[in-house]
Design a protein around this nucleic acid. Structure first.
Lengths: 133, 133
DNA sequence: ATATTATTGCAACATTGTTGCATTAACAAA
DNA sequence: TTTGTTAATGCAACAATGTTGCAATAATAT
């Protein structure tokens, strides 16, 4: 009945097996995953190209957010739609286990002069995580 | 006379035209530059591969630092060896003019629990820069 | 001027990301 | 349940980015 129009161009999104699989892998993951990691973890459920396209959609739908590590590797993490949810949180990149994890509780404080318009930020801290310490 | 050993493996660095050209381009640049931008700005002074290798050396020698934008694009900026010099400063990424600039004066403040060991960070703020505002 | 070896260029390769198009399959409506 | 529409997929082909091996070159100490 009710048509589900969840983007501004009124183009319907569909729930496909590729999409649900990828989202589940991300939800069950302890850390953010790269495209290459998702390719192996989804175990051939879909093509390499499809993963790129599904990730793009998931980000647009606000179900997944994109993280860039200090090495420039792009990773994806399922959004935690809790009270404190925001894409603008700190990410921690462990040198040892190479994982990238969300730290939603810690907010960075900076003071830029007011001729800058701030829209978003990417804050990745590198070091050793609690598990490896 | 005096042998110049500026890396831990006692391997001498040499000042080549490629290296000095690339460093000069970076020093004269208003913003951080990507590999592709350096390729055109150096105007064929050396091979594509050489630029990768020179940049690696310049980073090791602490003359250049690496910045990762929110889009995952790796850029390089000449280090400002002043009193406040540190690689761990904020970078601003303008959505309009696509430039990435160092903001050395602003230090971010975060409070991680002490089971994290912090070694470095990459903090890129995206928005509109003063020139475009 | 010479010997040593860091650096370069080139070719070849690996990885990552993009695009076009015919086919498939999700979903709304009948 | 069946059908029509079209979002999503797979595949191939491509573009961009980054890496490696090796012979030739050139920077530096002597």
């Amino acid at each position: 009945m009710q048509q589900c129009c969840n983007n501004i161009f009124m183009k319907q999104f569909r729930n496909t097996t590729a999409k649900t699989t990828i989202l589940n892998v991300l939800k069950n993951a302890e850390a953010a995953l790269s495209h290459a990691e998702l390719l192996t973890l989804t175990n051939g459920v879909c093509d390499r190209v499809t993963i790129y396209r599904v990730l793009e959609r998931l980000v647009n739908e606000d179900n997944v957010h994109k993280v860039v590590t200090s090495d420039g590797i792009i990773k994806y993490a399922a959004c935690n739609h809790s009270a404190h949810h925001s894409h603008d949180h700190v990410h921690f990149n462990c040198e040892k286990c190479k994982t990238t994890t969300c730290i939603e509780m810690v907010l960075p404080v900076i003071q830029l002069s007011n001729d800058y318009t701030v829209k978003s930020f990417n804050f990745t801290v590198t070091g050793i995580c609690p598990k490896c310490n």
